[in-house]
Design a binder for these strands. Structure first.
Lengths: 247, 247
DNA sequence: GTATTTTTTGACGGTGCGTCAATAATTGAC
DNA sequence: GTCAATTATTGACGCACCGTCAAAAAATAC
């Protein structure tokens, strides 16, 4: 019994070590660049041993994505330390998003890697569920804020729109902007100089469009966001020891 | 001289044939699934001949993306046939986006394929410029509408926001939503049942947030969008013969 | 009809994935 | 401490793919 768990612990430790080796390769050279041989040689193990832990490359990538999405979820949870009306908490969440993209860029990139059919095709349902679960938790946190706002009468939405679908809009703005920012070869050339500022403006405008109380116009919003960034950063830094890639 | 151009024409014809063979493979099986050997054998040419036309796989994919983005640009241009205040033309553009995603799904998928560093690393600057150019043209069309609105006094934006950055918001909502829709394993499970409706709602809300005149509340917006979809679709269908994958 | 240029071909070297029989290490019974 | 049984590790192997290039074939020029 004790024996078994010791073995399991060792197994677990090495799995994590594999992920530690794989992560920087994935980030630096993408899915193509990550090779099992390379991971094996860098670990000083044979390839077969790696395959004892992960049945294929896709599973490694998904495992890395789980780590990264858990970091995101932790940031989302930590942003809950900000008190105040729902709209402010929603903004704190936006700040968490911004923090994640700016300071956990590696994790953001890993998250992107898994948005490909081929990866979902080849990976185990079990690990896929971990992703789904984490995604659901993130959604739950944000949708909770929306529900609070509705309950307090600070926000009224059309009956055809669920709170989750409202969150979907903010998710899309953030996610879409960030994808475009990182993958569009020359945003500045087509007139987009400060995408992060643009995201803030659009989130504020969307909140205003929904008439989410208390009313807050752009200058006030931007100032509040700056303050939130100040407040939240030190909190987030405390995660450093738990996690991998905050910089 | 005449000889040379005939050869060039044949060369051109075969390049297009390669793309015609490659496209369905790319769409069905992704970048990984597309193999040069397969294209060659399906064309009944030797692999070397394919390499006479495209120096590597990435160039083929980029060439396909150019075709798809040109289709998008054409749809954007065609949406200009709708007359009326800028806000309505902006909505027509939204309808064009929706049409593209829904009925040119293959092209939408191809557009996604090129948002990877590894593809830009390996492809020629020349073809990259074709993409950038097309992207710039699309941006130009939409930003033009925004500028019109500003000129007419129907829209006022903060001086810190360029018209292009405003477009960026709508782009992000559309692009982000669609990526999430196609790649998130289970949006319905986390509460998002009708992403297309959600996109419309968010675009309307964003327009309202910017106080873009003439004022239009959600029900009116949704009805107008439905009408636009009716009006525009037959127009778009006329592209069918020029292009590849409208369905 | 022959010499020259152009085009096509597919075998080849190199890399990477995932497998599996052979080998090494660990375990536990005596 | 020994040895048989179990478990873990290894890396060579089969297969697939990319991109190259010398040789063969076709087209062209004369």
């Amino acid at each position: 019994m004790v024996e078994l768990t010791r073995k399991q612990r060792e197994m677990e430790r090495r799995s994590l070590e594999i992920l530690r080796v794989a992560r920087p390769i994935l980030i630096a050279e993408g899915f193509q660049g990550l090779s099992m041989d390379r991971v094996a040689s860098q670990m000083e193990y044979a390839k077969g041993t790696i395959y004892n832990h992960f049945p294929n490359k896709e599973e490694i990538v998904l495992a890395l994505a789980v780590e990264s999405m858990e970091l995101r979820r932790n940031l989302f949870e930590q942003s809950g330390c900000v008190t105040g009306p729902a709209r402010i908490r929603m903004m704190a969440l936006g700040a968490a998003c911004e923090f994640f993209t700016k300071h956990c860029t590696d994790d953001f990139l890993v998250e992107q890697c898994i948005r490909k059919q081929s990866i979902w095709d080849k990976s185990s349902e079990q690990r896929q569920n971990l992703i789904r679960q984490c995604e659901g938790q993130c959604m739950g946190i944000v949708a909770g804020i929306v529900r609070d706002a509705i309950t307090c009468g600070q926000l009224v939405i059309a009956p055809s729109l669920t709170p989750e679908e409202l969150v979907f809009g903010f998710w899309a703005i953030n996610y879409g902007s960030q994808i475009l920012t990182y993958s569009s070869p020359s945003l500045p050339a087509i007139g987009i100089k400060d995408p992060f500022n643009a995201i803030r403006v659009h989130c504020c405008t969307l909140l205003n469009g929904f008439a989410w109380q208390p009313t807050m116009m752009l200058p006030e919003y931007l100032e509040t966001m700056s303050n939130l960034n100040e407040i939240l950063q030190p909190k987030f830094w405390s995660l450093k020891n738990q996690q991998h890639s905050i910089n």
